[in-house]
Simulated scan of single mutants.
Amino acid sequence: MVSALGWLAGNAFAPLFALLYSLLLAAALRALWRSGERQEEIRVVPACVEVIPVPGGSPVFRAHPHWVRLLTDDERVRLASSGRQVEVGSFLAPAERQTLAEMLEGLLAASDGGNRRR
């Protein structure tokens, strides 16, 4: 509507700029929406621990729970076994990452039957 008023006032390029602006805004919002859809699947069962970055995809990390170590620092949560490491929860906020680390610690201890608390 504003571009139509601009066109009526003599600015012949107002509708074109409004269309271009709308397309750029739509593309930016779509990219933002898609970045918020990131997820990964972490399976902890008595037989193995798997990290699958995309649901339905193939695992990027697989190991027996007895040999998996949980490595945490201020910014990252990692699972390690046999010289391999994978970062999990990189897209989470720091408080959510801490909750993930605590949950993984409990699941690893329960699946292994041992106590992994440090």
Rank of each mutant, 00 (worst) to 15 (best):
F17H: 03
V88H: 08
P15F: 07
Q85K: 07
R38D: 09
Q39H: 10
A31S: 13
L20M: 13
S82L: 14
E75Y: 01
F13T: 09
V68E: 07
P55A: 12
R78H: 07
E75I: 05
S35N: 13
A12I: 06
A93D: 07
R34A: 15
L24G: 15
V60P: 03
D74Y: 07
P55L: 08
P46L: 00
P53C: 06
G56V: 05
G57S: 14
V49H: 03
S58T: 11
V45W: 10
R30A: 15
W33D: 14
Q39P: 01
S58W: 04
E50D: 10
H64C: 10
E87Y: 00
Y21G: 12
S35E: 15
R43M: 10
V45S: 15
F13E: 12
G56T: 07
V77G: 00
L92W: 02
R76Q: 14
V86D: 08
G56K: 00
V54H: 12
S81P: 02
P15M: 06
A80Q: 15
T72E: 15
V49W: 04
G36C: 09
R30P: 02
G56Y: 01
V54N: 11
P65L: 09
A14Q: 08
A47T: 08
S35H: 13
L32Y: 12
W67A: 12
S22H: 05
S81W: 08
Q39F: 00
W67Y: 13
A28R: 13
R78D: 03
G56I: 08
I42A: 08
L16E: 06
V60K: 11
S90A: 15
G57R: 11
G56W: 08
L92E: 03
I52W: 05
T99C: 01
V54G: 02
H64L: 02
L19R: 02
W67T: 05
L79C: 12
L23R: 01
F61D: 03
E96M: 00
L19T: 07
Q39T: 10
G56F: 01
A12K: 01
G36N: 10
R97T: 04
V77F: 06
G36F: 10
H64E: 15
A12L: 06
